[in-house]
Design a protein around this nucleic acid. Structure first.
Length: 645
RNA sequence: GUGCCCGUAGCUCAAUUGGAUAGAGCGCUGCCCUCCGAAGGCAGAGGUUGCAGGUUCGACUCCUGCCGGGCACGCCA
């Protein structure tokens, strides 16, 4: 058995080595388990290929516990290790530095691991029960054009959603549409007024019209509200405020009209509601169009607008009051999160700033809606986990909403009785190449539609000129498809390949660059592999062999083959760890590494021109597996590779 | 004032969550297409990880204090 690796159920070498090292540590230090110490062998892929394939970092941590020098501990573990069937012989020379244990896999073990990974799942398996995960990945506002500020959330959120789906969880996407409140009422009121004046046709209204109406309505009401706000800020008392309100309402009808419209909307008064509905449809149509352009999986079915919570707010607030969760403070209704009232659950951090639930005038705030959304997502949708892919500037707000929901019991999962895991996947702002907020030359905000158009146009030119260079002719349809793939890859990879918590420097030139760590580079790696198989089919190299190469053994002999193989084997582990941390840039970095390994392999190891049929078959399998891993990983990021480019 | 995020090569970013000599890409200097597409590969130069302490076998990572930048802080969303 010791030398028969062919039947080992090896998929992930890390898992196998973990088992073997746990057994060895158990045998070397039997008292540990009795003491209830969790044994973590800390197996990790080695950073330096010249030292090892994998290493265990356990000895150093164990040293203090067992009262022996780390290298001695490593020696004791090593004495009990049984790895002959999968690793090259392990001797005292494998102990390095302070007590690292280095191991090198046998080539046949690598090959076996690769072959067991060569399945539709690519070795990715769900450990434990599938969870229901709500991903809040978009929050478009009614009657407003989408702009650069709306770019990151769907790109990052969709990737996170796809990742959870890929590892086997149930994902519910939520587009938290800003479709309710006074601002919307103001716009609705203005649109109705313009329509009755005959200067606007509601049937033919565009998002551009709405965008203008929104801004104009804001301006109409703004100066009046500014006066009110000043009066309130200086604590001039309800009497003065009331007088000002009267003055203001008399001066312009806009503010009064907006409030009346809000009441009408809340009552679903037919004429008003119909206009609102039209505004909603026009906004959402372009929103969904943008999602399709970006290849972001968000549909109308994922929309859960603020309006959908409107009727639930009053009863929820009553519930909060009756149970003493919310209390009056300076005329408003708040939930204290600093521990002065309700006790903060263990493991949660208190927050000094209270959560404002209801205004002095009785109106609700966005925190009210967001708490309500937590309640629905956990209580009705049964979310075990809620991921909010929202601008980092909302961090305090999100923490307040989460803690309020927990104090209210809304975040307690109905089945498990435990808090749902609520997390703010915060991301930074989009900056221009000058390091300042991304704007047009004239200083306006960049419309998302314009940004996408320019991306695809630049991608098309890049693809076209490359094809001219190579004497490749693409049909107009294929050019169109390839350009979209390249554009999407460039845009998304640039966004996803850095730590999302940081601000993100947007640069067309960099993301669409012909060389380097970019989306197009990864697509190119995939296309090169596809070309090999196309060429094989065209030239009949595989004629007579059929698809027999798919079953043949994989040989891992050349250095480049081994490096590539070890990289491929890390894939399931990378997906798993990224699923826990939501650090998508690690998946990007991994894919870039695999693509790099493949490029070296491609350079050094002839595939179709291999010396003999067995090597050729083996390398074809390696190519195929590489292609599937990279395409699978890119797909998880929401990126699709074309056939040719 | 309080809180959150950040500070790494000239530029843009990483660093397996405390592991070995801090790595990539761009740019720069050299090589490699009679051979599966060079959007590629190989090699080189480039660093006191903002500063000062501390924790330990080991710190870019954790703790404390400064310096510098961004953001947020009850009746907008």
């Amino acid at each position: 058995m010791a030398h028969d690796a062919s039947h080992l159920p090896v998929q992930d070498p890390v898992a196998l080595l973990r088992e073997r090292f746990v057994a060895a540590i158990d045998a070397a230090f039997p008292t540990l388990r009795a003491e209830g110490v969790a044994i973590d062998p800390m197996i990790v892929a080695s950073k330096q290929a010249e030292l090892a394939d994998y290493q265990s970092n356990a000895a150093m941590g164990l040293a203090k516990r067992v009262g022996k020098p780390p290298r001695e501990v490593a020696g004791a573990i090593l004495a009990k290790l049984q790895l002959d069937d999968v690793c090259e012989p392990v001797t005292a020379a494998n102990i390095a530095g302070p007590g690292f244990v280095n191991v090198r896999l046998r080539k046949d073990a690598i090959a076996n691991a690769l072959m067991s990974m060569d399945a539709p799942s690519l070795g990715v398996a769900l450990s434990g029960e599938p969870h229901t995960i709500v991903v809040d990945l978009m929050g478009v506002n009614l009657a407003k054009q989408m702009h650069v500020g709306h770019l990151r959330s769907p790109v990052i959120g969709d990737a996170i959603a796809r990742l959870f789906e890929r590892v086997g969880h149930k994902v519910i996407r939520q587009n938290h549409v800003g479709d309710w409140g006074l601002n919307i009422a103001m716009t609705t009121a203005r649109v109705m007024r313009l329509a009755s004046e005959g200067t606007l046709s509601i049937d033919r209204i565009t998002l551009d019209d709405l965008d203008k109406a929104y801004a104009a309505a804001q301006a109409e009401c703004q100066r009046d509200m500014a006066g009110l706000a000043a009066a309130r800020q200086w604590h001039m008392g309800p009497k003065v405020i009331a007088e000002l309100e009267a003055q203001v309402d008399g001066a312009t009808n806009a503010f009064l009209e907006a409030r009346k419209t809000l009441v009408a909307l809340q009552a679903k008064e037919p004429a008003t509601y119909a206009v609102w509905k039209k505004i909603y449809e026009v906004t959402m149509r372009t929103c969904i169009e943008v999602c399709q352009l970006l290849d972001v999986k968000v549909t109308d079915a994922d929309s859960a607008g603020e309006s959908s919570y409107a009727d639930e707010l009053a009863p929820m607030v009553d519930d909060l009051i009756s149970r003493g969760i919310a209390v009056q403070d300076q005329g408003a209704l708040i939930v204290r999160l600093d521990g002065s009232g309700l006790a903060i659950p263990t493991g949660e951090e208190s927050i000094k700033e209270p959560c404002l639930i209801r205004k002095t005038d009785g109106g609700y705030l966005y925190a009210t809606t967001d708490v309500c959304a937590v309640r629905r997502r956990v209580q009705k949708l049964h979310a075990h986990r809620g991921v909010y892919v929202i601008d980092a500037r909302q961090n305090l707000h999100m923490r307040q909403v989460f803690l309020t929901s927990k104090l209210a019991g809304y975040a307690t999962h109905p089945k498990t009785g435990k808090f749902a895991q609520l997390e703010h996947a915060a991301f930074g702002s989009v900056l221009g190449e000058d390091g300042r907020p991304f704007k047009t030359r004239s200083g306006d905000t960049v419309k998302l539609a314009d940004l996408l158009r320019e991306t695809f146009e630049r991608a098309r030119q890049a693809v076209q000129s490359k094809c001219d260079e190579r004497n490749v002719t693409l049909s107009p349809q294929e050019l169109e498809h390839t350009s979209r793939c390249v554009g999407i890859a460039a845009l998304k990879y640039a966004d996803l390949s850095t730590d999302k918590a940081k601000d993100y420097l947007f640069s067309f030139n960099r993301m669409l660059a012909f060389e380097g760590d970019t989306g197009p580079y990864l697509l190119y790696a995939v296309v090169r592999i596809k070309n090999i198989f196309r060429k094989a089919a065209e030239t009949g190299v595989l004629a007579g062999e059929g698809s027999s190469w798919k079953q043949g053994p994989i040989g891992v002999n050349a250095p480049a083959e081994k490096t590539l193989a070890l990289a491929l084997l890390r894939y399931p582990g990378v997906l798993q760890s990224v699923g826990a941390t939501l650090d998508l840039h690690r998946l990007c970095q991994y894919l870039f590494e695999v693509a790099g390994c493949f490029a070296s392999f491609y350079d050094q190891c002839p595939v179709l021109n291999a010396d003999d049929a067995a090597v050729r078959a083996s390398r074809l399998r390696l190519c195929d597996l590489t292609r599937r891993v990279v395409e699978d990983g890119l797909g998880t990021l929401g990126i699709t590779a074309p056939e040719r480019m």
